[in-house]
Design a protein around this nucleic acid. Structure first.
Lengths: 123, 123, 123, 123
DNA sequence: GTGGTCTAGACCACG
DNA sequence: GTGGTCTAGACCACC
């Protein structure tokens, strides 16, 4: 389910954090479902358990999961979080659009990209 | 003209590189115009000359400037580079749009962002 | 394995870069094998770690190695790279031949050089 | 006749030296013919006279030209020099061929390059 | 321990 | 004065 890209310059714990975040936000991991244990996931990806531990800590800090001592880590999903993340994404998107405009990319090109991406899904 | 944000996690040399790149691509710095010398810019930003040196090296490697020993660094602009950078930007944009869609943001919202950014300029 | 020639006018980092490149391209260093750490190689060659760092950065930029923070630098070999380097070499070779011709060296002499070099290996 | 390439990383005086050398060795400049004066060539290329001076000094040191005080610089051609330069070229060529072989380029490819370059001239 | 960035200060080649 | 390289020494993030 998770893959580590050693060509990616980002730290491993961040890659893991982000991948799990995406799985949660895209609804692949349901609320209250159990995540793999720190040690088992570490073994599966053949990386240091500390790294997984750090990823899980980050996720907990950001409110994506909760941990129960002696039982494991679980997905904590709620509408608020989804909305907050959507807002973050939109802010990033607006900055991106602004950059496009500043660099002389036409409105039509931008619109075409959107149509392209969204029509794909209707198929 | 250039500002260093010490809260930004990116390295200083990268911030400088990116800022100058933007100045060139947005047409603020014209082709063959002279950039400030390594030492003077370092002093102005109160950072080490080596850091500016590195930024300038990156810019040269990427084809944005050329350096002449004993004379200075100069802007090297050409159409190809502008187009190549626009393509890069569009690819990044498409990924961004794709992410929006995956996270459940409606097409209408995306279109609204674009209209907003591009209408601003018509005013 | 690596030697620095202080009579060579080229910068040290470039000599190191080139030597390691050759080791990789000639198959001496296998894919995914670990390179010596920045500090240890610096000590071995009794030069500054920054210089090795720079050599490694260049190698990474050119796609010969990849670095993993906290782990080390590793050889990244692939067929594409070998072919690309062969093409570069051939282009350089053609320029060289062209120069020979312009300077009045006979075709026979050039052919003799090639026979000499390639026969050596058949022995 | 001479062009300075500011994208070339070599120093200007070296570019000038090399270009004039080539002109001499290829027989474009005949023996005892007068070279342009330091100042006029400097003006023509819009570079510093010191730079031309240095190029001419190098050429004199290597035996390609001789200078007569108050009269100017003149081409000094002789068979020995041509042969010496040819030998230099051949040594460089042999190294190049050796490199080709080490990198796994086939003898046939090398021969093809030579045939190509030399047949062109027969046309 | 690893790589990566930065500073301070020095030296060289070039124009 | 200009860019380019190098050293020495430091600090940080990551594993």
């Amino acid at each position: 389910m998770i893959f580590i890209d050693y060509n990616d310059k980002r730290p491993i714990y961040e890659q893991v954090t982000e991948k799990i975040q995406t799985l949660i936000l895209n609804g692949v991991l349901e609320s209250d479902s159990k995540l793999p244990s720190v040690r088992s996931l570490a073994m599966e990806l053949s990386i240091n358990p500390n790294t997984i531990q750090r990823a899980y800590s980050e996720l907990e800090r950001e409110g994506f999961i909760y941990s129960v001592k002696g039982r494991g880590n679980f997905v904590k999903m709620n509408e608020n979080l989804i909305i907050k993340e959507q807002e973050k994404l939109l802010i990033k998107f607006k900055e991106n659009v602004e950059e496009l405009r500043a660099r002389g990319i036409l409105k039509e090109q931008a619109l075409a990209c959107i149509n392209e991406a969204y029509e794909e899904v209707e198929r």
